[in-house]
């Protein structure tokens, strides 16, 4: 029996949480260089709370939009910080984008990435080049859309989205933070990958593994983690 869309999203959040958990210390270390060393911990708390809340939900009768909306508030209430409002707004926008859908095909998956990216951008009043998670999310959203527009399949879409996110995250190395606490250390942020961009890549990879049947074929050589 094929998995319903809500269940896929539940599985997606499980995979994200697991991937974040595995990279938790690495993310905190990245953050220690230019921030307050808690990024891995914060992300881990957030996605664990999402899983805990979704576990109480009846996935058979839930819509994708409902799952995303519940995940948004669970993440926000568990985390606060700056990632809380950013990802909560992103997930809330994704929920709105999928309001009338019961399925999660490639087009809706691309729409979900785009909505998350948009939500993060609007809430953080940030732009590309500010050395934030947007430097991974925006390129990923564009690459996913381009793959869809050019008739690329599911695997190709995720491959290109993840590759774009990865190269975007790497390019934060030569950027100077304009937002968040890293902005206070000025030029010292140079040469370091933004931890928010690094975790965005981890999330996108986990999302790719959720939806891509040939998950093993998603091999993006990464210089991020």
């Amino acid at each position: 029996m094929p998995e319903n869309a809500a269940r896929s999203l539940g599985r997606m959040f499980h995979l994200i949480s697991g991937a974040i958990e595995a990279e938790k210390d690495h993310l905190s270390e990245l953050d220690g260089v230019i921030g307050d060393a808690d990024h891995g911990i914060t992300m881990s708390i957030g996605f664990m709370a999402v899983n805990a809340t979704l576990a109480r939900l009846d996935m058979e009768t839930s819509t994708p939009a409902a799952v995303l909306s519940i995940a948004a508030s669970a993440f926000l209430n568990a985390v606060g910080a700056s990632t809380g409002p950013l990802y909560a707004t992103g997930l809330q926008r994704a929920s709105q984008a999928l309001a009338d859908s019961c399925e999660l095909g490639p087009v809706n998956q691309a729409a979900m990435i785009a909505a998350i990216a948009r939500g993060i951008r609007d809430r953080g009043k940030s732009q590309r080049g500010d050395k934030t998670m947007l430097d991974a999310w925006l390129p990923a959203a564009e690459a996913a859309q381009t793959a869809i527009d050019t008739g690329g399949g599911l695997t190709m879409m995720w491959q290109q989205a993840i590759a774009a996110a990865d190269s975007g995250a790497c390019s934060t190395r030569s950027m100077i933070a304009a937002k968040g606490r890293a902005a206070r250390v000025g030029a010292r942020s140079l040469g370091h990958i933004d931890p928010g961009a690094a975790s965005a890549v981890i999330i996108l990879r986990a999302m790719g593994r959720t939806f891509c049947p040939q998950q093993a074929t998603i091999r993006v050589v990464s210089s991020v983690s």
Partner: peptide, 11 residues
């Protein structure tokens, strides 16, 4: 009150 070094959420 938020988590360690993290803002509290809106709630």
């Amino acid at each position: 009150i938020g988590n360690i070094f993290s803002s509290p959420p809106p709630d």
